[in-house]
């Protein structure tokens, strides 16, 4: 069993060698806020690999990464969500103790209750991270989720990678 520090070194080396620049966003899109935040509809998007108990987990056997996504209903009990993120690159104890660490649904419910955020969308979206080969993610699944969010008339997407 490697220590966390060992894994971090592995991750650091991987990150150094990975061709991130191939996936640079260019040009950078700029969509100004359509309305004040206290009137806006917000959706959460995470790459924590969360899913509801009745949804299938992510497939960690896909070598280049599982590019599918799960719809998380806004009514979900946050702590019922299951984390099936495959990455050994981080300590999973945090998310196991509190899903809000990676998917802050309870915090956004509090912001809505305080009147600081208009409302939450009826669904949120969860992806698996560690997508080593992101071609399908960039070309298909991420645009599909963006389209669903547009159809839902979401004003703000709040993204939490892990």
């Amino acid at each position: 069993m490697a220590t966390y520090d060992d894994l971090s070194l592995t991750v650091r080396l991987f990150m150094k060698g990975y061709p991130f620049s191939r996936y640079a966003i260019d040009p950078v899109p700029c969509t100004p806020l359509a309305k004040p935040l206290n009137e806006a509809r917000v959706a959460l998007v995470t790459t924590a690999g969360l899913h509801t108990p009745d949804q299938p987990g992510f497939d960690s056997s896909i070598k280049m990464g599982d590019t599918s996504f799960r719809e998380i209903p806004n009514t979900v009990e946050t702590h019922s969500l299951i984390e099936s993120h495959r990455s050994p690159a981080f300590d999973h104890a945090g998310v196991q103790a509190d899903r809000n660490l990676v998917f802050p649904l309870d915090r956004f419910r509090e912001l809505v209750a305080r009147g600081e955020v208009g409302e939450l969308n009826h669904r949120h979206f969860s992806f698996m991270g560690s997508i080593v080969g992101p071609r399908l993610l960039i070309g298909e699944t991420a645009p599909r989720v963006a389209q669903l969010l547009r159809e839902d008339r979401v004003d703000v997407a709040f993204l939490t990678p892990v």
Binding site: F90, D91, G94, N100, L101, V102, R107, F108, T160, V162
Partner: peptide, 19 residues
């Protein structure tokens, strides 16, 4: 650390500051 985008588990005050 990776895996901790909102800072700390069960620390709503910190999570709210990050948000």
């Amino acid at each position: 650390p990776m895996g901790y985008p909102l800072g700390e588990p069960n620390n709503p005050a910190l999570q709210h500051r990050v948000i």
